[in-house]
Structures are given as structure tokens and as C-alpha cells.
Design a protein around this nucleic acid. Structure first.
Lengths: 331, 331
DNA sequence: TCCTCTCATGATAGCGCTATCATTTTCGAT
DNA sequence: ATCGAAAATGATAGCGCTATCATGAGAGGA
């Protein structure tokens, strides 16, 4: 697109550089990859030629010729307004300095699109795939198993992982929140949020625990992914005195609903007519008032751990990053 | 990594499929790319062979052989807790269905890292580059100009773009906020947030306008990227009666500081001892109370527009997506 | 001086695919 | 039957690079 520069329309190649520097192509290749192996004088000549020509190596060709592709495929449900962005950030912070490219794909919580993106990723021959959750279909799982590369499933701890895992126990998170709310004397619990596999696992832990503790059967309200629905969720949950939201955005939205209904106090959790606990520990939850109680998960660490899992075959292939119940004033 | 399946360690190739189907390699290639061109009967045989072998085309080889790479490079400062995630989401929603892969790189607001990621991206031979802002260095700009591919700079409207632009006028956003605050009778303005080029442009518009309107010279407080600093920013700004925050997270943090200091009212903007205006229009700003006044920008539309700009050479190469001043109760 | 041994460089082949051109097959119209 | 055009398939070369093996040039020892 440059209207100025009159560069050759086709990018300079290794052999163009070689010719200009008066060496063979393979020597240029070595200057790029194994500079130590080339005599300083030759190297200088080649580097000058590269600079003059504005040479940018073609990694596609390099990869095809047998070297590594130095790329990883990353599949997330969504990246916008999502804590998964932390995971992507974490893993690319580990991987980019090592020369890896991150090929990002989003499934939008759609199984067909997930399968499609999975094979699209694989067609780029990444050296590994990191995904949030497990493949939604058996086709997807088979694709990954056959690929013969490291696969990291994250944000969960599947019983039969394809390969490696970096996540936490969503069921236990639900258990922890239910226990906390019940111990606080809450009797009418509800769970609001999505119905993806991870949210469902949290719900199961939450529900099982509440029932076992003798609370009335918890209600589950499925909401759109944006938090607006949480604003009016209260109307659907008459008599509720404690809510576990699948993420902090929903929790904060629900708190706004409570405020409008006059059911939010500036005081401590014990004084709240309706307790609210979120999940994610967004910075925002710390900043609002009353502060949001939440399950803190380590999205960034999940990403970094996933990166390490693909970089070395040693050590455990299943890492539980855990979570923490962070208590503030909302519940 | 699959401990089960005993697949050949090396992925099946086009010719493996061809052999199995009893046709030539090029016919298999056509089944993949131009199915209409192959007789239904032949196609069925080939498709069966592909399925049996679990064939996944090698797009690297395809790209090298002269076809397009069907990939775009995307460079953003950061993706976590950032409205740039909307832009990435928007552009990949446009591009992924068309078979494009998104190669994501993060500069972390670092010029060296940006240059480095730029040439790393280019070495993958993307068909276009979409970046937030403009290259920080002349080296980076030259690299892009020489690449001979569409380049889209976003989130700004540079005077001399490399190629195409999808953004909005940051200076005008600063002007709009200052005008609004001054019209409201505010006299002691301050700007808090980062010092990246876009924030600085906003500051310039804000500062120029406030001075021209006869307010006392605005203060500028540079904060870390996380919003915690905004919580205590108030202490640094004695006597301030209006604050423009570079993003909504900082704005909400600052409001928490105000609340602690007893300077936040539940009433309308006119009653606020200190007015607060953010930028970004996070969903959260709508959910909190008092509602956050903010500059709404269209991160998603910027991404979609950038995608369209690389897909067609027709139409304007410079799209101003604008912004809106959204007034709620904070200022 | 000759021979080995190391260091630096080069020649060759081929990665898996597609562009291009060539060939074969099919089939309707005469 | 015969021909010509269209449809279907194939052969060949080469994209830009690296793995592998081969060669040449110095360094040092006897």
C-alpha cells in the first residue's frame, strides 16, 4: 500500500541477500538462526545486505523446510469483557519473548464453530494448542488427539484430559461459596449466570452443598453473557437471600438491582439483606462499594502455566491453580 | 501427546490422500479448494480418503506455493482488562468466518517490543496488519511501508497514515469533556490516566479547551495502568472539582476514592462535589451508582471496520467512528 | 613439509503444496 | 460414426527455506 517507496512488490528472499553479500544462501540462513557459527566478518557483510534490502525472513518457508513453526494455537470462547483475556495475556507474555506467535481463535461458545476453528488452527501447524475448557465434541477431541502435539486444556480439571491441564476445580468453587453462605445463615440461595460447562460445574457444587446443608433448593437463573440481565434478575428470584453469580460482572449488575430495590447496605456482609458473591475478582469489585465478595481465580497464572506445560515435557501434566474466596462486604 | 491412538507421528500429506483415493495429488488439492471442479464421484472417493486418514491440509505449504496465507497480524498494547479486546473480537468476528487466522501480538506499550513484534508478525507473511495506534518508531513505520500489504492504524486518526485508518479523534474527545465540565460550572479540572499517545491527545484537547474557557490550568496526573492508583489520586489533587479519567476503570477507582472521602452523592451530576467522566463506556459504568458519565467509543466497530478496510480496496481509507458523551450521574 | 583436526562455507535435495500448462475423457450436435 | 468443445484429470516446476552431507581453508603438531 505504500504510495511512496518503490520497493520491489515481492519481498526480498534469502538468496537475494546472499547474492548481494556475495555468499551462499545457507550462510545467510545461518546468520539469521545461528550467528555464532558464522565468521564475524562474513556476518557483518550479510547483516549489511539484510539491512539494505529490508529483508524479513519468511517463517512459513522456514517452517516447511523442517524447522519448527514457532506458533501456538489458542482457542477461547471469547476475548472481549472476559477474564480469558488474562489467560491469553499470560501465555503470550511467556511465549512471545521466545519467538512464538499466538494464533488466536474464538469459539463464541459454539460447538460447531469450535470444531471449525480447531481444524483451522491445526492447518497452520502450531506446535501446541491451548484452549479454555475441553473440546465440546468427540470430533474435536479426536482432531486434537491425532494432531500429535501438546494440548493444554485450561480453566477446568477434566478427568480424562487429552494431554495437559492448567485449571482449577469449578465444582469446589461452587461448594466453597455455598458453604460460606450457609454458614452465614442464608437459606434461600440462587445461582445466576451462563450455562457453559464451567458454570454448570460451579452450579453443581453449589447446589449439592446447599441441599446437603439443609438449605431450600437453590434456584438457577440462566442469563445472557452481558451483565444487563443481572440488573433485573432480582424480580425472578423472590425471597432469595444469597446469590452466587457466575462472574463479577453479573454480580455487580445484580448489586445494582439490589440498590434500586433498596436492598443494599454500606455495612458489612452480615447486614446485607441479600448476600452476593461473584467469580473472577475483577479490579472493579474492589473499587465499588460495598466491596464485592468473590472467588478469585488466577487467569493470568493459568495462561503462564499453560505456556510452561507446552514448553517442557517434564513435571506434572496437570496443574491445579486453585482459587480463593475473597470476602468483602457484599456477602 | 496422545498416549492412545497410534497414528503415524507425521501428519498425512496431500499425496498420501491421493494415493489412497487413487487419484493425483492435484485432484485432492482441488477437492479441498475448488470442489466444484471435481466430478462428484471422484470427490466422494477423495473425501472418504481424507476422512480415513484424518487429513488436515498444511496451510503453510499452501501459502508458500503461491496461494494466500489467509492470515492477518494484529498488534495491540495489551489485551487484558482492556477495551482493545473489543477491537480484537470485532475484527476476528469479521475475519474468522472468511478463513483468516488472527496472529495476535502485544507490545505492552513498549516501543522496542512493538518493533520486535512487528517484524515477528511480518515474518509470518500476513496479508495485512491491524494495529492500535501508529508505529512508535520510524523503524517500525518503515517496516510496515515496505511490507507492501494493507496496514490499518486504529484508535487514532493520524495525519499521515501509512495506509488505512479506523479510529476517532482523541483530541476532540478531550475537548468535548472539557466543554461539558466547564459548562457545568467546574473550574478546577484534572486529567488522570496513562501517558500513551492517545491519552496524551485527549489531554491536549482537554487542556487547551479548559484554558481557552478561562478555567484554572488543568492538572494532569499520570497513573499506572491498573486502576488502584486512581483510588488515592484524590490526595494528589487538592481543590479539584472535575476529573476526566483516561478510561472507565480509572474513573470508577477515582469514584471509590471520592466515596471514601465523603464526596460522592447519589444525586445527579450537578450535586456532585467532584464531577467524574470516564472513557470507554464499560458495562460496569452503567451498573454502578451513581452511573458513570463517560465518552463512549466503539471498540468493536473499530475492529470490524479495520477488517473491512483490509478486505476491500474500495471506499474511504480513513474511517472516523466517532464517540459520544454519555451523561449519567457522576459528572 | 605433510597430515590431521577444527572451523567456516557451500551444494544438493526436498518440505507439502499450488500455478500453469498439457492431456484425456465425455458428450451433444451433426 | 465423427468432430469439436467443454469438463475432468494429470505432469511438472518451483514457492523460500533448512537438514544433511561435502568441501575448503587455516591451525597446529610431528
Amino acid at each position: 500500500m505504500p504510495p511512496t517507496d518503490f520497493e520491489p512488490q515481492t519481498a526480498p528472499t534469502l538468496s537475494a541477500v546472499a547474492e548481494r553479500a556475495g555468499v551462499s544462501a545457507i550462510t545467510v540462513s545461518r546468520v539469521v538462526r545461528l550467528p555464532e557459527m558464522v565468521a564475524p566478518q562474513t556476518r557483518a557483510k550479510v547483516e549489511a545486505a539484510m539491512r539494505e534490502l529490508g529483508y524479513v525472513p519468511n517463517q512459513l518457508a522456514g517452517a516447511l523446510a523442517g524447522a519448527r513453526t514457532k506458533s501456538v494455537g489458542v482457542l477461547v470462547p471469547t476475548i472481549a469483557n472476559s477474564i480469558f483475556a488474562d489467560t491469553v495475556q499470560g501465555l503470550s507474555d511467556e511465549l512471545e519473548p521466545l519467538g512464538y506467535a499466538v494464533i488466536l481463535a474464538q469459539s463464541r461458545y459454539d460447538a460447531d464453530r469450535e470444531d471449525h476453528m480447531l481444524s483451522a488452527l491445526l492447518s497452520r501447524r502450531p506446535e501446541a494448542i491451548i484452549m479454555v475448557g475441553s473440546p465440546a465434541t468427540e470430533d474435536g477431541a479426536r482432531l486434537l488427539r491425532r494432531a500429535g502435539i501438546p494440548i493444554v486444556e485450561t480453566w477446568e480439571l477434566p478427568d480424562e484430559p487429552i494431554d495437559a491441564v492448567a485449571g482449577f476445580d469449578n465444582y469446589a468453587a461452587g461448594v466453597a461459596v455455598a458453604q460460606h453462605l450457609v454458614a452465614q445463615g442464608r437459606k434461600h440461595l440462587a445461582f445466576i449466570g451462563g450455562d457453559d460447562p464451567r458454570a454448570t460445574r460451579r452450579w453443581n457444587g453449589f447446589n449439592d452443598t446447599a441441599l446437603r446443608a439443609g438449605a431450600s433448593p437453590p434456584r438457577r437463573l440462566i442469563l445472557e453473557r452481558n451483565a444487563s440481565g443481572s440488573l433485573v434478575a432480582l424480580a425472578e428470584l423472590p425471597g432469595v437471600d444469597a446469590v452466587f453469580a457466575a462472574n463479577d460482572a453479573h454480580a455487580i449488575g445484580f448489586m445494582s438491582g439490589l440498590r434500586k430495590a433498596g436492598l443494599l447496605r454500606e455495612g458489612p456482609a452480615a447486614e446485607q439483606p441479600v448476600a452476593v458473591v461473584g467469580l473472577g475478582d475483577l479490579e472493579m469489585g474492589r473499587l465499588i462499594s460495598p466491596g464485592l465478595s468473590t472467588i478469585r481465580v488466577h487467569g493470568d497464572a493459568i495462561g503462564r502455566t499453560a505456556a510452561r506445560l507446552i514448553l517442557s515435557r517434564e513435571g506434572p501434566r496437570r496443574v491445579d491453580l486453585g482459587f480463593e474466596l475473597v470476602l468483602r462486604d457484599s456477602g
